[in-house]
Design a protein around this nucleic acid. Structure first.
Lengths: 199, 199
DNA sequence: TATTCCAGATACCGATAGTATCCGAAATGT
DNA sequence: ACATTTCGGATACTATCGGTATCTGGAATA
């Protein structure tokens, strides 16, 4: 009688690898993180990586999935705070400020996007995820707009695209230049979101 | 008597390498472009690269310098068109639309920014260049604002940062997803720049 | 208890950034 | 004009890393 089945042990291995890979990808970047390092840091050999993932790309995609999940959760929480529009914007701005202050995520995101240029699989998968992020953000925006009875300067889809792009671009620049003023994000968001009140 | 001195010939070699490297970096990306490919495409051997540049990083920096020069020129031209505010915004929007439509530049820019995480030299050099881009854009914005007598929703520095970040972020996403709506840039710019007229 | 199966280990290959060394022609000095 | 030095670029080599092929020990199955 086995305490843990083979499938369970493999799932544990996979989780360990993702967890360790996440730390390394985020702190050192995609290119600078070798599969050997990931495997050893997790207490395995490179073979373990290849028996759980088709390669480096799929491993990184799995890591990004865990990150995206948390990002969506954070966005939703910020925007569903029980407050008026300004309160929600403030909550979201605070969340964004914290994320952009140490923007290891965006750096990984854009570095991995570069990989997509040579890999159709990565390209299609990333496009799926980005569209998902944009459309769920747009839904949130529409909900807030309906609640608050305001009119947007941009439609929700475009606004969501602008905010995601701005966040990614700002994060990428911020990861180079830590003196860069992160409040730009909140300010821009206010300019776009507040729009002209119709009440 | 020599038709061309040694220094002249080396300068020619350097220029050839930069030109070829620019094409390859832009079309294939930083990681996917090997120095061997660059050298051969330019009709030299890898040794020629290393005798003109300290390595891949410095070569790419030289390429980016040629690009940044053109970008600044394009921005200045668009914003100094002899027209009213809307005309200038339209000119800039058209320029941005064309650049973001085939955003090979932003893709290279963000991929190379990832390299900076492992290379202090690249980091400091890129920061210098980005700050230069931001501050010269901010100057332009201030000039336009003074000319037109308008008030900004963001101060010029923040506005320039927002626009550069948005452009980079949008370009990075657009290089993945060519269905992405590039007009978001112009719309956002209008929202930020037009501000409240004071005349 | 014997057989099968497979997660993970080991050994290997190809590509590529970078280094060490070399060569030949141009620059320099007598 | 000839000898010597200099150095841009070529050649040969190393180290690292992603990926593949193969192997193995123990768990699953009969």
């Amino acid at each position: 009688m086995t305490r843990t089945t083979r499938a369970e042990r493999q799932a544990q291995t996979r989780e360990s690898l993702i967890e360790v890979a996440r730390d390394l990808f985020l702190s050192d970047g995609y290119a600078a993180t070798s599969l050997e390092k990931v495997a050893v840091a997790a207490g395995f050999s490179k073979g373990a990586v290849y028996s759980n993932f088709s390669g480096k790309e799929e491993l990184c995609m799995a890591v990004l999935d865990t990150i995206h999940e948390e990002q969506v959760q954070g966005i939703v929480e910020a925007f569903t705070v029980d407050a008026d529009l300004d309160g929600r914007i403030d909550a979201f701005a605070a969340w964004a400020r914290e994320k952009l202050g140490h923007p290891r995520w965006t750096a990984l995101e854009v570095e991995f996007a570069a990989v997509a240029r040579q890999s159709p699989w990565v390209a299609t998968e990333l496009v799926k995820r980005h569209r998902m992020l944009v459309s769920s953000s747009a839904d949130l925006i529409r909900r807030v707009v309906a609640d608050e009875g305001i009119e947007l300067t941009l439609d929700a889809q475009k606004g969501a695209t602008a905010l995601l792009s701005l966040g990614i671009g700002l994060g990428a620049m911020r990861s180079l230049d830590n003196q860069l003023d992160v409040d730009v994000f909140a300010d821009t968001m206010r300019a776009l979101l507040r729009g002209s009140r119709v009440d």
